[in-house]
Design a protein around this nucleic acid. Structure first.
Length: 451
RNA sequence: GUGGUUGUAGCUCAGUUGGUUAGAGCGCUUGAUUGUGGUUCAAGAGGUCGCGGGUUCGAGCCCCGUCUUUCACCCCA
């Protein structure tokens, strides 16, 4: 048969993995610096754990796993014959692949509530699966790197997440914009416009504002019942503002007398108090048109975009006040952020930001021309490896140019050439393949030379 | 899930209104070069034209299906 990949999935070869690992390591280092601890959960969850958490659209994108054994025989006859896919699914599938890392976290916290010390700060870097139609920057299998704080209502956590994001993207060399909003302010706006009952449709509409512009959604807004005056009010509110006290006051004044607005603005103000001295505020904007589709957000919402590449968001998150409630653990507030490393990779690739990522850790490759050289090199290599230096020994006896080409292609900077003269004198010939510099080096000094 | 788009050598792509044996550049292999590569020169290998079916005397080219890619919608990392 002809081998092929499943739609929307990819292999990651050594060169790509080296770069992906660099991104993972950068993110993980920053997470650890803020006190987050690692967690891993299974690729599959009970279907009922997953369904209903991501909205109607989200449920459609869940990958479902067929029951083991003779699943058809156990199905209810009437349902089986009804040809109603969604009903049949519930008869033959009880498991699904995880859709994100937040719901599995909520499930874990609810199950382990007695062992966990709160506030619980965990990070998780694992693949998730969505049955989306693939596009550039959109895959069916992709990796998320999440950091969440469960069991703390402090806005310091939001500030932490913003600082973490800023530090990660600065380290990776990506110019970015952080968009910040609060669901409570969105609720206040809906309340001011008297469309609280159509909040979901309203949120979806304004979320695509930055993509299509205000004029493109006026028809749909009037379908929601807005008149021209209300639309003007709305248009004035939904602008990208700098992250400072002035902007917050402006919003408060426009929504004066609505409690939810006051709450939302207070929250943003508290975040601003924490981050004020950190120097990251210039990358942050208050954007009231930021909505985010995920149903479970209740307070702060965050989204991050790369400035120099046209691509969906590379990171997103927010606060959810009752995610563990459905698992029998009410009144636990959490806040988290998720980094999409596949998109981050695509952005960095497009902007050529991988120049400083080494192709290999190997410091030198040993070449030889006969068995004596092979044996000598193998002994020498094992000595150097004990010192913690990455070394390759060319395994075969081939012409030198062939050996050089191998080292060149793997990005190994130095070759050591061992022949009879070198073995006798313990003076090894080396050549730097990048600078083309070559010479002799004492065997005993080789370790220091390669470090 | 809806509607478009894409697929030809390892890679990037040509390929005329349907007409013998499908091309180029790069890469690859071998040699010039038995201890110094990426230059140069010479020779060579490599393709069931995504897959399946159909129309035709004849299909890389036309039609249908399917898979893949990509774009818009939807949603999102």
């Amino acid at each position: 048969m002809k081998p092929s990949l499943v739609k929307g999935t990819r292999d990651f070869g050594p060169a790509v993995m080296q770069r992906r690992k660099y991104i993972f390591n950068t993110i993980e280092t920053v997470f650890k610096k803020y006190g987050f601890m690692p967690l891993e959960t299974p690729a599959m969850e009970q279907l009922e754990t997953l369904t209903g958490k991501y909205g109607e659209e989200g449920d459609k994108l869940l990958f479902k796993i067929l029951n083991s054994g003779d699943f058809a025989a156990n199905a209810n006859d009437a349902i089986w014959n009804s040809k109603a896919s969604n009903k049949i699914t519930s008869q033959i599938s009880e498991k699904g692949l995880r859709y994100d890392l937040t719901v599995p976290l909520a499930r874990y916290v609810a199950m382990n509530r007695n062992e966990i010390t709160f506030p619980f700060k965990r990070y998780q870097m694992q693949p998730v699966w969505r049955a989306d139609r693939p596009q550039r920057g959109r895959y069916r299998e992709f990796w998320q790197c999440d950091a969440d704080i469960i069991g703390s209502e402090s806005l310091m956590n939001e500030a932490d997440l913003l600082c973490i994001a800023a530090e990660i993207f600065e380290k990776l060399g990506i110019r970015f914009s952080i968009l910040l909003n609060n669901r409570k302010i969105l609720e206040a706006i809906a309340s001011k416009l008297n469309i609280e009952d159509k909040f979901q449709s309203f949120v979806i509409l304004i979320d695509k504002l930055d993509k299509v512009g205000f004029d493109a959604i006026t028809n749909e807004l009037s379908d929601l019942g807005l008149d021209n005056f209300q639309m003007d009010t709305l248009k004035n509110l939904l602008v990208k503002m700098p992250f400072n006290l002035n902007s917050i006051s402006t919003i408060e004044n426009k929504l004066i007398g609505i409690d939810r607005a006051k709450e939302g603005c207070d929250e943003i103000r508290k975040i601003s108090n924490f981050t004020g001295t950190t120097g990251i505020i210039n990358s942050i904007y208050i954007d009231l048109s930021l909505a985010r589709g995920l149903d479970y957000y209740t307070g702060s919402i965050i989204e991050i975009k790369a400035n120099d590449v046209k691509m969906g968001s590379i990171s997103g998150g927010g606060r959810y006040d009752n995610l563990t409630g459905v698992f029998g653990l009410p009144s636990v507030s959490g806040v988290g952020i998720s980094f999409g490393i596949d998109r981050i990779y695509d952005v960095m690739e497009e902007l050529n930001l991988f120049a400083n990522v080494a192709q290999t850790e190997v410091k030198a490759m040993f070449c030889h021309l006969d068995e004596n050289g092979q044996n000598f090199n193998y002994t020498l290599a094992s000595e150097l490896r004990k010192e913690g230096i990455s070394i390759e020994v060319f395994p075969d006896i081939k012409k030198l140019p062939k050996q050089f080409e191998y080292a060149e292609k793997k990005g190994i900077p130095v070759v050591i050439i061992t022949g009879d003269d070198e073995i006798a004198s313990e003076q090894l010939s080396y050549k730097n393949l990048i600078t083309k510099e070559q010479g002799k080096i004492e065997r005993t000094e080789l370790g220091g030379f390669l470090k």
